[in-house]
Amino acid sequence: MIAFEYLEHTADVMFRAYGKTAEEMLCNAASALFQAMVDPTTIAAQESWTVELEGDDLEDLAYRWLSEIIFLFETESAVFSTFSLQLKQDEKMRLYGKIGGERIDLGRHAFENEVKAVTRHKFGIKKNQIWCIQVVLDV
């Protein structure tokens, strides 16, 4: 199983990320989002950030998770390379995530894109043998 793959899109970045579990799929999606911007091998996971989110369902939560990463990237001026998370279901669906990365250093972090936002265009999650999420990013 590959972690994620980018698909052709004229103006924006489209990817599919996979996982044996929903958690793994969401972590791989976060990696795909970040790798669209900057080479992850240049990022050292020196610092960590925690994220707690809730949503109506997995799709809702996935959208918030990826949007949260963009929010943190901008407001913390940080780039991320490691993602781990747990999902819990009570009356809502909840996500507890941990993100590892470091502050942006343009001398080392060569950006190819800046992701502005996660779109809902063609956004969707499917589960067959494995989990798959499709995302179009606005760059």
């Binding site: 052709e8 899109h9 004229t10 103006a11 924006d12 760059v139």
Partner: peptide, 10 residues
């Protein structure tokens, strides 16, 4: 108006 994808451009 774009005609070429970003990945193709890269």
């Amino acid at each position: 108006g774009r005609v070429m994808s970003r990945s193709q451009a890269l």
